[in-house]
Simulated scan of single mutants.
Amino acid sequence: MERWFNVGKIVNTHGIKGEVRVISKTDFPGERYKPGNTLYLFQKASSTPLELTVKSHRSHKNFDLLVFEGYENINLVEKFREGILKVPESQLSELEEDEFYYHEIIGCLVATIDGEEIGKITEILTPGANDVWVVKGKDGKEVLIPYIHDVVKKVDVKEKVVLIEPMEGLLS
């Protein structure tokens, strides 16, 4: 059975020419939303995903705006609202060394190189220069770990473990 990965949620339409406003959940929006790529729309009303081909993509404020081939009119895409865009596992591409998909990182246990357990990664933020991993500790507190080589020393996605060497003040 095919595994599916969420790459975005359609939250609204944009203009009258069939653009949809997407909150992106993908690690690589420029690559994933490239014209010609296929995305699958999952909606509550239907058990079968709708295959869509990206016609155009642009960023606007905090959203990605997409137009799909054959759906260049607001009346055709209005029903897509609240739909989830996904890709099958077979569409995931090989990554470079030290690159990971979000679904591989979320859920990993974070510990220091000295063996102190910090917590589990619950979310990944992308504020700019580098990703920031949100780690929820046993006490419920969240710790923000920058994904930089000075801090993150080892990532083992098979064992779901990340080893860090915290900078001064990072964990306090």
Score class of each variant (00 low, 15 high):
Asp150Lys: 08
Ile124Met: 04
Val110Pro: 00
Asn130Glu: 08
Glu116Arg: 07
Val135Gln: 04
Leu144Gly: 06
Gly107Pro: 05
Asp150Arg: 06
Gly119Ile: 04
Glu117Ile: 01
Thr112Ile: 09
Lys153Glu: 15
Thr112Trp: 12
Lys120Glu: 15
Leu109Val: 05
Pro127Met: 14
Ile121Gln: 03
Val143Asn: 10
Asp150Pro: 01
Pro146Thr: 03
Lys153Asn: 10
Gly119Asp: 12
Glu117Trp: 00
Leu144Asn: 14
Gly140Asn: 15
Thr112Pro: 15
Leu144Met: 15
Val134Pro: 14
Glu116Cys: 04
Ile124Pro: 08
Asp139His: 09
Asp131Tyr: 15
Asp150Tyr: 09
Leu144Lys: 14
Lys153Val: 07
Val135Ile: 01
Val143Cys: 07
Val110Ile: 00
Lys136Val: 05
Asp114Gly: 02
Gly128Asn: 11
Pro127Cys: 13
Val135Thr: 04
Gly107Trp: 09
Thr112Met: 14
Leu125Trp: 13
Gly115Thr: 00
Ile118Ser: 04
Asp114Lys: 03
Val135Tyr: 02
Val151His: 06
Gly128Thr: 11
Ile145Ser: 03
Lys153Ser: 10
Ile113Phe: 04
Thr122Met: 14
Trp133Ser: 07
Glu116Gly: 01
Lys138Tyr: 04
Val132Ser: 11
Gly137Ala: 13
Thr122Ala: 13
Lys136Arg: 08
Thr126Trp: 06
Trp133Lys: 03
Ile118Phe: 05
Ala129Cys: 02
Thr112Gly: 12
Val152Ala: 10
Ile145His: 00
Lys141Ala: 00
Val110Cys: 02
Ile148Asn: 06
Cys108Trp: 05
Ile121Asp: 00
Ile113Leu: 08
Gly140Lys: 11
Val132Asn: 09
Cys108Tyr: 05
Glu116Ser: 05
Ala129Pro: 00
Ile113Pro: 00
Trp133Asn: 07
Lys138Asn: 07
Asp150Ala: 06
Ile121Trp: 02
Ala111Lys: 07
Leu125Lys: 15
Lys141Gly: 00
Ile148Val: 12
Gly140Met: 13
Lys120Ala: 10
Leu109Asp: 14
Leu109Thr: 04
Gly128Leu: 14
Lys141Asn: 05
Lys153Ile: 09
Gly128Tyr: 12
Asp131Val: 10
Glu123Phe: 11
Val135Met: 01
Ala111Cys: 08
Val143Gly: 02
Gly115Ile: 01
Ile121Gly: 02
Val143Asp: 07
Asp131Gly: 14
Tyr147Phe: 15
Asp114Ile: 03
Asp139Val: 05
Val152Arg: 10
Ala111Met: 11
Trp133Ile: 03
Asp139Ile: 03
Leu125Glu: 15
Asp114Ser: 08
Gly107Val: 10
Val132Ile: 14
